[in-house]
């Protein structure tokens, strides 16, 4: 009987491995994974990878163009942009990720509750969610910053709050679809409790949606936090945050375009890497394909 208990797990890990192989077969996903991994390495090993101290100023180097020493040039205070971009990974990645996790946990819990309980409670709450979705999320985030005040931590909270309605709505939808499954009705008919149905039948069924939603929104979270910093509402100078760097570089764009090239490119690459991964992930574990596989 041990084999009976073991084999499903083995089967699942086998399908995970084959899924991973299937996932990486796609050139875009492979490129995205490599780029994202590179940024993660940058974030972890920034002090060793960056050739200069990101906040070390050098008047002689002010707005210096890219050369053999300062690869990406220098900013108005003569700081090495390459080093600052590497340190910037320490801001955008964790901040984006934290935002996502907070938003997903709160929004997901709401969504599961709404979808599962249904009825009048769901009807009213869904109305409120529709209203909140009406605010462009960046405006909603700005509104939260207006309440909490300027700063990077507040930006995390603001963007997370702004994402909650979207997560809640999508996950509520997924729960509603999962609830429609005949096997859920079968379980209820045989007397299964709500908790049993929730944990054995509904949560596993919505997991693919949650994973895809999370990955596809990580890019958005990184973008939104950087945007708020760019608008001067998030990370404050001299922090080497990519959005904030772009904000301080914009005045000198005419004479020193390199001040905006590297941070923008880094931000773009990080976001597109995450999006490539999310896109492929949604293809490989599309809930609609789940039955066939």
């Amino acid at each position: 009987m041990t084999t009976l208990a073991l084999s499903p797990a083995r089967l699942r890990s086998a399908s995970f491995l084959s899924g991973l192989r299937e996932f990486l077969k796609h050139p875009g996903a492979l490129a995205g994974t490599i780029v994202l991994a590179a940024f993660v390495v940058c974030a972890i090993f920034a002090p060793w990878l960056a050739p200069f101290d990101p906040s070390e100023t050098d008047i002689g180097m002010r707005l210096g163009p890219p050369d053999a020493i300062t690869w990406f040039g220098a900013d108005i205070h003569g700081r090495d942009i390459f080093s600052r971009v590497i340190w910037g990974a320490r801001y955008s990645l964790p901040v984006g990720f934290a935002t996502l996790v907070v938003g997903l946990i709160i929004g997901g819990t709401f969504g599961v509750m709404l979808g599962y309980i249904g009825g009048r409670f769901d009807a009213i709450a869904s109305r409120i969610i529709d209203v909140l979705l009406g605010f462009p999320s960046i405006v909603l985030a700005i509104m939260v910053v207006a309440v909490l005040g300027v700063g990077l931590v507040n930006v995390v909270v603001a963007v997370a709050i702004a994402e909650i309605p979207r997560f809640a709505r999508v996950i509520r939808g997924a729960v509603l679809v999962a609830k429609q499954n005949l096997y859920v009705e079968a379980a209820l008919a045989m007397g299964a409790s709500s908790t049993r149905v929730m944990f054995l039948h509904i949560l596993p069924a919505i997991m693919p949606t949650v994973i895809v939603l999370g990955t596809l929104n990580l890019g958005n979270a990184i973008l939104s936090t950087a945007t708020l910093s760019f608008l001067g509402l998030g990370a404050q100078p001299p922090a080497p945050e990519w959005g904030a760097m772009l904000n301080s570089g914009r005045e000198y764009m005419r004479y020193a375009p390199w001040t905006m090239m590297a941070p923008g490119l880094a931000l773009f690459l990080a976001v597109i890497a995450v999006n490539l991964i999310g896109d492929r992930l949604s293809e490989v574990i599309d809930p609609r394909n789940a039955r066939r596989r």
Partner: peptide, 9 residues
């Protein structure tokens, strides 16, 4: 994936 502020710049 383009940050619209960067593409604007």
């Amino acid at each position: 994936s383009l940050p619209s502020f960067w593409s604007g710049m």
